[in-house]
């Protein structure tokens, strides 16, 4: 059976999901292109440090939970967030395998499902926190809830589809909605997160704040 024959075997919902993914990637590419076209800051102040190592630090050391109050003061939320994001990326990966109906060994299916279950519970926990916590609720908008619900349901649907093929239609329809929503709502932080870390690294690197070090320097006077 060649590729054409395989494609002919796909049902309508198995067709729309990759199409939605294509649209999503195209829209995200638009965001990326726009950022690249606008370019990096053109700072005319003489630098006090190096941007390269600072950007690297911004993406690595500065992300360490020991360095950020948003992490070390909120460890349960931080941990739930990390697991939730890993689960989301794993679900995206499994989407391709489910699309081509790649069979998994039962043990692997069990392990993947177990992780996704934990991840989906984390996502649901974050959602509950947003609803219950008065301060967080007052900050939230429908996009915050919708983004969370879509990503969490996507993970839950992935688990179900791994075991129950009759869920495939719902799974691919849900995946299509999620893909189409990513570039429109806050889920586009999948792009902007890296851009933000870059700019932060650039700013602190140019001004000699990052990466932190012990070396003394002498300024010309």
């Amino acid at each position: 059976m060649d590729v054409f024959d395989s494609a002919m075997l796909l049902t309508w919902y198995e067709w729309i999901a990759p199409c939605a993914l294509g649209v999503s990637l195209g829209a995200l590419l638009f965001h990326i292109t726009r950022l690249i076209r606008l370019g990096k800051p053109d700072d005319t102040a003489p630098p006090l440090g190096n941007v390269g190592p600072a950007v690297f630090y911004s993406m690595t050391g500065a992300m360490s939970p020991a360095k950020k109050e948003s992490a070390y003061l909120h460890l349960p939320t931080y941990l739930a967030g990390i697991i939730y994001h890993l689960g989301t990326f794993l679900s995206f990966l499994l989407f391709f395998f489910l699309l081509i109906r790649l069979p998994f060994p039962s043990l692997l299916t069990l392990l993947l499902s177990a992780f996704l279950l934990v991840s989906a519970v984390c996502g649901f926990g974050i959602l509950v926190k947003r609803v219950v916590n008065l301060e967080l609720r007052s900050l939230s908008n429908p996009d915050d809830y919708l983004s969370n619900i879509l990503a969490t349901l996507f993970q839950a649907a992935t688990i179900l589809t791994l075991y129950l093929p009759e869920w495939r239609a719902s799974y691919f329809i849900l995946a299509s909605i999620l893909f189409l929503y990513i570039p429109l709502g806050k889920l586009k932080h999948v792009i902007y997160f890296f851009a933000a870390r870059y700019h932060l690294g650039f700013f602190y690197g140019w001004r000699g704040v990052w990466p932190p070090g012990k070396k003394e320097r002498k300024t010309n006077c």
Binding site: H31, R34, L35, I36, L38, G39, K40, P41, D42, E69, S70, A71, L73, H74, T77, Y78, G81, N133, E135, L136, L139, S140, N141, D144, K186, K188, H189, Y192, F193, A195, A196, Y198, H199
Partner: peptide
């Protein structure tokens, strides 16, 4: 209006409303 570099566009689009900045 988006003059200049990508910094403004980036930061205007990045917040995920986690609210964890409050304690800082």
């Amino acid at each position: 209006n988006g003059h200049g570099d990508s910094k403004l566009l980036t930061h205007l689009n990045s917040c995920v409303h986690c609210g964890l900045c409050a304690d800082s």
